[in-house]
Amino acid sequence: MALANYAASGLSEKTAYLELHKYGEMKHWKKPNEKGYFEDYRIHYYPDFKQEQIPILLNYGYEKIIMDFGDAYSVYREEILRCDKKIFLLNLNPWQEYAAEKTAEDLQKKEWGNIHPIYASVNAQNMIKKEIEKKYGIQIMEIPFIKNPRLLQAEDFLCMDFILGQSAAKVKKRKSLIPIR
């Protein structure tokens, strides 16, 4: 939502947000119109969006389409691989470390090709972050805690620019310590 908000309000781009995870939170917020979306702060929110509709939406003239896959990244592998920017949020709390490691490990599998996603984490614990970075040869970006994704502050811009801007593609990949199977 913060990325969509930055694209729409900060960069003045026509932006769509697609809810592709299966939690169906968006429909509880606002009711979509007959075209299947509702508008908030210039963003078109598509709740419970169907995967097969994605190609159609690509032709609606949006400058930015933010797809929220939740934790269902394996289900949407093909879509993710087609995205210009692939952002994976990792939860680095000690009790979630296993999930973060699993994601990093999965993405290095052959079926994911040689993708270079942006790994990001909020309030990453330095020890765990370093450990995972070293183990999987990746860089985890620390992103600031955004109090309200619907009202971004100037200090959030740097991170948003990094993710959405060209610099996002320049993340240096470290040499993996684990050979790709």
Binding site: N5, Y6, S9, L151, L152, A154
Partner: peptide
């Protein structure tokens, strides 16, 4: 160059139109 929500070129500081979702002063 971008400084917070401001854009700078030499002596000039400018702020483009931001939408409601951005709070830059």
């Amino acid at each position: 160059t971008k400084e917070g929500g401001l854009y700078r070129r030499g002596n000039f500081y400018g702020m483009p139109v931001y939408g409601e979702g951005i709070e830059v002063k």
